[in-house]
Simulated assay, not measured.
Amino acid sequence: MDLRQRDKLNFVGFTQVEVRKMERLLTKYKDESLKDDFCKNVARALNRSTGRAGKPVAKWPEIQNWFSDNLEKVPNEISLQIKKKSPHRDRIVFVAEQQRDGELSVLEFEARSSKDGAWYDVDTFLSHRLVDSGQSEFLVRYVGFGAEGDEWVNSRNSLRKRSVALGLSDCHKVKIGDGVVCFRESDDHQAKYYDARVVGIETRWHDMRGCRCLFLIRYDHDGVEEKVRLRRLCV
């Protein structure tokens, strides 16, 4: 007797604001939105936003399923070739000028705060300027913070593409000497991400929870060493 295929259960935990954001992402990036790394970035941004506080965690496969289910609804658009207007108009400048509420630009970048040296997800590029050295600086607003947290950051050393959390079985990708981004809970119980380097690895058997290996990391900003699980590491 043939087994009847069960219908896939759609995740219904997205808020209306999140759905509107994902609709804009899907319209702009289409097939690109089905890639694992893309969905992981979206999941990380949604889960760290104030609108998801107190709600179940949005998992990246659920986001990927949503994109897949809605991809055919996206109308075809004529792609436009964007030309740079000056040598200083790099991709980040273009994103800052073209940003609209909810587009991928809020999901792509993280900035290092001069206040504590931690990396925070960028919610909005508010402005940009050229300093005397010829480098670009951007006024950013961080995810989960208001105008009081706005900060000018240097595009060369304090702004980069958002790091991605490692999967439960990605421990083989981490080597001694690798640079990583590590989650660290501050004294005020805030989640902060700092640059660190892997200085030791204790390989262990995996179980149903995934990787059980321990990674000895040394934080770049204060030299403190700590043993952490894979789930706290991003690359």
Rank of each mutant, 00 (worst) to 15 (best):
S68T: 04
D69W: 05
E72H: 15
E72D: 15
K73P: 00
K73D: 13
V74G: 08
P75S: 14
N76Q: 12
I78N: 15
I78L: 15
I78M: 15
S79I: 12
L80V: 15
L80D: 09
Q81K: 13
Q81N: 10
I82P: 05
K83P: 00
K84T: 09
K85H: 08
S86E: 11
S86Y: 06
P87S: 02
H88R: 11
D90H: 09
R91M: 13
R91G: 15
I92A: 05
I92C: 04
I92T: 11
V93S: 06
V93K: 09
V95C: 12
V95T: 11
A96P: 09
E97H: 11
E97W: 07
E97F: 04
Q98H: 05
Q99V: 03
R100I: 04
D101C: 04
G102R: 09
G102D: 03
G102T: 07
E103K: 08
E103D: 14
L104R: 08
L104V: 11
L104H: 03
S105T: 11
V106Q: 12
V106E: 12
L107H: 10
E108N: 13
E110H: 07
A111W: 00
S113H: 07
S113C: 04
S113Q: 03
S114E: 04
S114C: 02
S114Q: 08
K115E: 11
D116Q: 03
A118I: 04
A118T: 05
D121Q: 13
D123E: 13
T124K: 12
H128V: 03
H128W: 13
H128K: 06
V131N: 13
D132G: 12
D132Q: 14
Q135S: 11
Q135Y: 06
Q135N: 14
Q135L: 14
Q135F: 06
E137N: 07
F138S: 05
F138L: 08
R141S: 10
R141N: 09
Y142V: 02
V143T: 14
V143R: 14
V143I: 14
G144F: 15
G144Q: 08
F145T: 05
F145N: 06
F145V: 03
G146L: 10
A147T: 13
A147L: 15
D150M: 09
W152V: 12
W152Q: 06
W152F: 15
V153A: 04
V153S: 01
N154G: 05
S155T: 06
S155L: 08
R156H: 04
N157M: 03
N157E: 06
S158H: 10
L159V: 04
R160M: 10
K161P: 02
S163W: 00
L166C: 08
D170E: 11
C171I: 06
H172R: 08
H172C: 06
V174I: 14
V174W: 02
I176D: 10
G177Q: 10
